[in-house]
Amino acid sequence: MSDTTPSDQPEGMSPDPSGEEPILYADTVDEYLPRDVVTAAGDESDQRERFRQSPGLDTELVDMTRTASLWGDAWRQLRRRPVFIISAVMILILVIISLVPGLFATHDPRDCNLIDSLLLPSSEHWFGTDLQGCDYYSRTLYGTRVSISIGIIVVFFITIIAVTGGSIAGYYGGVTDSIIGRITDIWFVIPTILGGIVILSVTRSRNIGTVSLVLIVLGWATLLRLVRSSVLAAKANDYVDAARVMGASNARIIIRHILPNAIAPVIIVSAIYIGVVIAAEAALSFLGVGLQLPAISWGLMIATAQQRIITAPYLLIFPGAFLSVTVFSFILMGDALRDALDPKLR
């Protein structure tokens, strides 16, 4: 790693042992050392301390460059990891399928012919046909659309709720925090599937909208609590006090200083959560309280496949595999993100 502090660096210094590593911490005021085992704390940290406390230095600038470097690092780290690349590719493929399933499907999933009922996989019907005689391959592909849409919609809204609520709770503390805390406690007590059954068993219509709404209503608590603890941790940093002393408004502090630093675990969990939501929707549809026919959902397909496990296992295997792979890719993505973002946060 090329060295950073300018004129102090003596001649004949050690050659760069890992040549291809770019200069990571050149201009940034970073708190942590690249190699704590090796590098001495001594002079370097003293210089950093002085830099941070220089009068007249805009702490915002300091803060921004710091977080900018964090994200820059993270991206560089991510790009290299095979886990990230694999999951990113898988998700990309799935998203494309969900957007334009027609591109990949061999038949119209609704073009069903009873004569062709329950055919085994063949060159004509790659995944065989179901009870109604619909091409299973195309149906499975179209199921992607429902799952991915619900996954993304639900997590999107949950993130908004969680970030807003969590920031307020974490930042303002006090009574607001207690109230929000009690409310999340109450929500925590209700398991998702149970709650889903309770609500959906009395709703009249069950479409992507209702199911998404139900999952949003039931699922914001975990993420909110996570945001809250991240915000609490970020709030403890000195630059928050510095910003406040300089007269920044609360909203400004939250948005420009705290959130960028608190957001990383939220991103990680959100990615994983998309997978969780997709699995939850499939479970609810499987139980019959989620989407109904003629909607195409993997959960529904698996439910109808139940009775024919022995005679026609493929009815279960294909949507099951797609569902598993989809959930898996999001969880994998979350794992990859955590590896890249987490150690930096410590």
Binding site: T5, D8, Q9, P10, E11, G12, M13, S14, P15, P17, R35, V38, T39, A40, G42, D43, E44
Partner: peptide, 30 residues
């Protein structure tokens, strides 16, 4: 203060390890 910073232990300077920061150093030292 002593100028410079402690060495990177992955690549310790040759000869006397202190020579890069030493005011008494000569050619003999590295």
């Amino acid at each position: 203060p002593i100028p410079g910073s402690p060495p990177d232990l992955l690549a310790i300077p040759s000869g006397c390890p202190f020579h890069p920061r030493c005011t008494y150093a000569t050619d003999r030292c590295p």
